[in-house]
Amino acid sequence: EVYKVKIKIERVLPNGEKVEEEITIEVEGMSEEELLALARELAAEPGVRIKEIEIEKLPP
């Protein structure tokens, strides 16, 4: 199964400015739980906050 994972994050820059970013990846052969863990890892940097995680199962 192939999933499209869209992660919206908010990053706080050293000057205090907040910037929103969106990361989209396609992943194959992982469960939804593994995808959530991967998304959290991607956003685990200091000053980064996850705003939204969207997981979509793509048709075969």
Rank of each mutant, 00 (worst) to 15 (best):
E1K: 08
E1G: 13
E1W: 15
E1A: 13
V2H: 12
V2E: 03
Y3V: 03
Y3W: 15
K4L: 04
K4H: 05
K4E: 02
K4R: 13
V5F: 13
V5I: 08
V5K: 00
V5C: 06
V5H: 00
K6S: 07
K6V: 04
K6G: 01
I7M: 12
I7L: 10
I7R: 00
I7H: 00
I7A: 01
K8M: 04
K8E: 01
K8A: 04
I9K: 01
I9S: 01
I9G: 00
I9T: 03
E10Q: 07
E10S: 05
E10F: 12
E10W: 14
E10V: 09
E10R: 02
E10C: 07
R11F: 05
R11I: 03
R11G: 00
R11E: 00
R11P: 00
R11M: 03
R11T: 02
R11K: 07
V12R: 07
V12Y: 08
V12I: 08
V12N: 09
V12W: 09
V12C: 04
L13W: 05
L13Q: 05
L13N: 04
P14T: 08
P14S: 09
P14H: 12
P14M: 13
P14R: 05
N15R: 02
N15F: 04
N15C: 04
G16C: 04
G16R: 02
G16S: 02
E17R: 11
E17A: 10
E17I: 13
E17Q: 13
K18P: 05
K18F: 09
K18G: 05
V19T: 08
V19N: 04
V19C: 07
V19L: 07
V19E: 05
V19I: 13
E20L: 07
E20K: 03
E20P: 04
E20V: 08
E20G: 03
E20I: 10
E21P: 01
E21S: 10
E21R: 07
E22F: 07
E22P: 01
I23C: 06
I23V: 08
I23R: 04
I23K: 03
I23Y: 11
T24W: 05
T24Y: 09
T24D: 07
I25T: 03
I25Q: 02
I25N: 01
E26P: 02
E26H: 07
V27T: 10
V27G: 07
E28Q: 07
E28L: 14
E28V: 07
E28G: 11
G29L: 04
G29V: 03
G29Q: 03
G29K: 10
G29M: 07
G29I: 04
M30A: 07
M30L: 07
S31Q: 10
S31F: 06
S31A: 05
E32R: 07
E32M: 13
E32Y: 09
E32P: 14
E33P: 11
E33C: 11
E33K: 07
E33G: 10
E33F: 15
E33I: 11
E33H: 15
E33L: 15
E33W: 15
E34P: 03
E34R: 14
E34M: 14
E34D: 07
L35W: 08
L35H: 02
L35F: 07
L35A: 10
L36A: 06
L36K: 06
L36I: 08
A37T: 13
A37V: 13
A37I: 11
A37R: 14
A37C: 10
L38D: 00
L38Y: 15
L38V: 05
A39T: 06
A39Q: 04
A39P: 01
R40M: 14
R40P: 01
R40I: 06
E41Y: 14
E41T: 15
E41R: 15
E41A: 15
E41Q: 14
L42A: 05
L42E: 01
A43N: 07
A43S: 13
A44Y: 09
A44P: 04
A44G: 12
A44W: 13
E45N: 07
E45H: 12
E45K: 15
E45S: 15
E45I: 13
E45W: 14
P46F: 15
P46Y: 15
P46S: 11
P46M: 08
P46A: 11
G47R: 03
G47V: 02
G47C: 09
V48N: 03
V48D: 03
V48Y: 06
V48E: 02
V48S: 05
R49M: 08
R49F: 09
R49A: 09
R49T: 07
I50Y: 01
I50M: 02
I50V: 07
K51L: 14
K51G: 02
K51R: 12
K51V: 14
K51P: 00
K51E: 03
K51H: 04
I53Y: 03
I53K: 00
E54F: 13
I55P: 01
I55N: 01
I55H: 02
E56H: 15
E56D: 07
E56L: 14
E56A: 13
K57Y: 12
K57L: 10
K57W: 13
L58W: 12
L58P: 06
L58I: 14
L58Y: 13
L58E: 05
L58N: 04
P59R: 08
P59V: 14
P60G: 10
